[in-house]
Design a protein around this nucleic acid. Structure first.
Lengths: 223, 223
DNA sequence: TGTCAACTGTCAGCGGCTGACACTAATCTC
DNA sequence: GAGATTAGTGTCAGCCGCTGACAGTTGACA
């Protein structure tokens, strides 16, 4: 815990300066991205706003894209640690479901330490609606899925390389999560609560959706 | 049918020349991509091989990336038309499953008209193993999924905007397909047959994977 | 206080991609 | 069949993301 604290509140002057520069760059970047569009924002504009050189930007962020995903990065690692914390009694799918909802409950203040939650929400929607960023987002999700599949396999005492179920379950879960995010991004209600509600509804639809006959009645499954 | 024929075998001299240039560019591009890597191949190298200007390349392909996906594009539209052809008696998931397998059976000759099936297989593996292309591939998949969800909803007489099941089913299906492709790409057996076999096994695991208790027996489901 | 290392700025350059414009050659018109 | 039309191409100049090299500056630490 002490290590994490130091990472968030560095001690030395140099470290604090570095952190300030990074935060300022990130804030300026996300502000410009969400304000005038990602593609329409040049790195030069970002560094002009912070009054550093372009070279400095690329020392903090490997790419313009990386800046766009800085917060998302935090959220994901948050989800992973929540998942690790789930009791072994929960079934795989149930554990993943609980972990996302818990992570969304607790990530708020961590975000607030850097930017605002509101800016993060706008950033998320921007990612979903910018083709090149959506692509990057999906690729990142694949990496995350691999980690989750490993975790699930471990929980269940299985080998991901031989048993298809961990990967398959994670793929299905994350597919539904993506659809949810997409719909939320297109919708009018931009609140965190609406995202959470949508998630619950859609995850609950997965079982019924895979069952054979849909005509028996919407949302009620085949029974 | 006549229109399609004309599209594949153009009549005029100008059209034939255009087609030759495009095919040559595509072949050179995929050859270089698979041979020395996508990122390591510059557009200049491609156009040098075909002896046209860089500007010409960008008139045929909106981007270097688009060239990498030219064949994939064909395969996808093939899948869509197979899906449209499935009888209404099939359940949604069953229809999608049949459509992929059918599409893979019949796409071979269409590919052979432009490049070789072997080059296409190598291209697919290159896409899977090149981060930026994997990202693009996933984004393209989302577009395809949206079309498929619309088709499925139409088959079942539902509205995608109100009923979550079409999107959820498609998301789960396509998630499993992606995992399959990923594993196939990492494996040793590069044949079409191995891809097909893997697909069948994994799709059949989806039901069991979502069921609660996995410890009852691997690969056999909860029953 | 001086040395070291970290951080930054400057500069030059590559590669993907685009707009503008002129040139060539296939097609159409009479 | 000659000329007008138009599609396709090459050339050139330039933007933007990104990188390597090198020098200057400024905290850290003895």
């Amino acid at each position: 815990m002490t290590d994490e604290q130091q990472a968030v509140y560095p001690t030395g002057l140099r470290e604090r300066k570095k952190r300030r520069t990074r935060d300022a760059l990130l804030h300026a970047a996300l502000d410009l991205f969400t304000g005038q569009g990602y593609e329409e924002t040049t790195v030069d504009e970002i560094v002009d706003a912070v009054e550093v050189s372009q070279r400095t930007f690329f020392r903090y962020f490997a790419s313009k894209e990386e800046a766009a995903f800085a917060i998302q990065e935090m959220v994901e690692s948050h989800f992973l640690s929540e998942l690790r914390r789930r009791p072994a009694s929960e079934a795989p799918f149930e554990a993943m479901r609980s972990a996302v909802l818990c992570a969304w409950n607790s990530i708020g203040e961590a975000i607030e330490a850097i930017i605002t939650v509101e800016l993060h929400m706008r950033t998320y929607r921007m990612i979903e609606s910018t083709p090149s960023l959506l692509a990057a987002h999906l690729r990142r999700s694949v990496d995350l899925e691999n980690q989750v599949a490993l975790l699930i396999a471990e929980r269940e005492g299985l080998d991901v390389r031989t048993d298809p179920r961990p990967r398959v379950a994670v793929a299905a879960f994350s597919g539904v999560m993506r659809v949810t995010g997409q719909l939320w991004g297109h919708g009018r209600d931009t609140s965190m609560d609406s995202l959470r509600a949508l998630t619950e509804v859609y995850l609950d639809q997965l079982g019924p959706a895979l069952a054979g006959n849909w005509r028996a009645g919407a949302g009620a499954g085949p029974g």
